[in-house]
C-alpha cells in the first residue's frame, strides 16, 4: 500500500497555546484512518491542518511538514485552491448551501470552471449516487437543500465534496449530529468510498472508529500517544493511557 500523507515534526500554536506537539504520522492510500481522543486533544485541529483550514484562524502558527503525494503543503508555491480540491472536507454540521440540491453539488465543479450543463448533470448524478442519495432526491433536484433531513444533508455535503474529485477526504465527526440509522448509512458509505479515496475521520464514538477504520491514531493533549492498525489499538494497546481511554475510564 502506498503512502499518501506523511507528517513530520508538525507543530501548531494558537497564539501561545501549543495545540499540536511534534506530530509524526504516515497515512496509507485507500484506507480509513480514525483520529480518536478526548475533546480538546487536538485531533480536529490536526484534521484541519491537512487542508490548511486553520489558515483562516487568526494567530495560528505552524512548523514542520505535511507531505501529500510527496509535496509539502506547508512549503512554498502551494496553491490553496488546488490543495483543497485534492483534500476535501466534511464538517460536523452539514451546512448545505441555501441553494437547490443540484446547485449544491454543482457548486464545486462550477468553481473550478466546469460550465457545460451535460457534464454538470453527469457529475451531479454520479456523486449523488456515490453518496447513496440519488434515489431519494432525483425527483427534487431543483428544490432547496434546506428541506432535507439531517442525514440527507450530511450525504449531500459528502456528494458536494466528491464532485470536485478529491483524493483525500477529511471528516470531522460527520455522524455526531445524526440518528443511529443515518449514522449506519454513513458508515457503510465510508467503507465503500475507501476503495477510491483516502479517508481521515475524527470521531468520539469508539464503536464507530472500530467499525470503519483500518488505522487508529490516539491523540492526547496535542500529542500522538499511539497509532497502529485499529484491531491492535482496540484489543491490545501498548500504552496504558490508550487502554484507559478506549475502555471509557476518561474522556
Amino acid at each position: 500500500m502506498s503512502q499518501k500523507v506523511r507528517v513530520r515534526c508538525f507543530q501548531l500554536y494558537y497564539g501561545t497555546n501549543h495545540a499540536l506537539k511534534n506530530i509524526d504520522l504516515d497515512l496509507a492510500e485507500n484506507q480509513v484512518t480514525a483520529l480518536i481522543g478526548p475533546s480538546g486533544c487536538g485531533k480536529s485541529t490536526f484534521l484541519r491542518s491537512i487542508n490548511r483550514m486553520n489558515d483562516m484562524i487568526k494567530g495560528v502558527r505552524t512548523t514542520g511538514t505535511i507531505h501529500i503525494d510527496g509535496q509539502n503543503i506547508y512549503g512554498e508555491k502551494v496553491y490553496l485552491v488546488e490543495l483543497r480540491k485534492k483534500v476535501g472536507m466534511v464538517f460536523q454540521q452539514p451546512h448545505p448551501f441555501p441553494l437547490s440540491i443540484y446547485d449544491n453539488v454543482a457548486y464545486g465543479p462550477r468553481l473550478h470552471g466546469i460550465r457545460d450543463k451535460k457534464r454538470l448533470d453527469e457529475i451531479v448524478e454520479r456523486t449523488l449516487t456515490e453518496a447513496n442519495l440519488w434515489d431519494e432526491v432525483k425527483d427534487r433536484l431543483h428544490r432547496s437543500a434546506l428541506g432535507m433531513s439531517g442525514g440527507q444533508q450530511q450525504r449531500l455535503v459528502l456528494a458536494r465534496v466528491l464532485a470536485v474529485q478529491p483524493e483525500v477526504i477529511l471528516m470531522d465527526e460527520p455522524a455526531s449530529a445524526l440518528d443511529p440509522i443515518s449514522t449506519e448509512r454513513l458508515e457503510e458509505l465510508i467503507m465503500r468510498l475507501k476503495d477510491q479515496y483516502t479517508i481521515i475521520i475524527v470521531t468520539h464514538n469508539m464503536q464507530q472508529a472500530a467499525r470503519v477504520s483500518d488505522t487508529a491514531v490516539f491523540f492526547l493533549n496535542g500529542e500522538i500517544v499511539e497509532s497502529g492498525p485499529t484491531d491492535q489499538i482496540f484489543t491490545n494497546p501498548s500504552d496504558p493511557r490508550t487502554e484507559d481511554y478506549i475502555s471509557g475510564r476518561f474522556g
Binding site: 483550514m53 485552491v81 483543497r84 480540491k85 464538517f91 451546512h95 448551501f97 468553481l111
Partner: peptide
C-alpha cells in the same frame, strides 16, 4: 460561518465565496 467554511473547503477563493454564496445568502 459553516457556509463560508464549506465553500473554502471546496477550493473556493474568498471572492468566489463572497460573490457566489455570501451575497446570495
Amino acid at each position: 460561518q459553516g457556509i463560508r467554511e464549506g465553500s473554502y473547503a471546496l477550493g473556493a477563493t474568498r471572492w468566489q465565496t463572497i460573490s457566489g454564496l455570501v451575497i446570495r445568502v
